[in-house]
């Protein structure tokens, strides 16, 4: 698993662990960053914009919450 911030523009991955502050992690999960959710990097950086199942989130976690993602071997830029 790699940190979400390492994804380049247009790259997709699936959400794995989300680590950090318990309440914040819960909120991120509720907002759609659940295990296995497909995430696409739309604008990298801090904050970044990610695409998730038909919607987009502006997100900057800093040290409070870190999203780790699985990059499947066959994943291609969509």
């Amino acid at each position: 698993m790699i940190p979400l911030s390492l994804l380049g523009v247009g790259e997709t991955a699936s959400v794995g662990d989300v680590v950090g502050d318990v309440d914040l992690v819960h909120r991120l999960r509720e907002m759609g960053l659940y295990n296995g959710a497909r995430v696409k990097m739309i604008r990298p950086g801090s904050p970044c914009i990610i695409g998730l199942d038909g919607h987009r989130l502006g997100f900057r976690g800093d040290d409070l919450a870190r999203v780790l993602v699985h990059v499947a071997a066959h994943a291609i830029a969509v």
């Binding site: 907002m31 904050p47 919607h55 987009r56 997100f59 900057r60 919450a65």
Partner: peptide, 12 residues
């Protein structure tokens, strides 16, 4: 308090 996390939906 720490700088808050930014988490906001970018609606269609």
């Amino acid at each position: 308090s720490a700088t808050p996390v930014f988490l906001m939906e970018m609606p269609a």
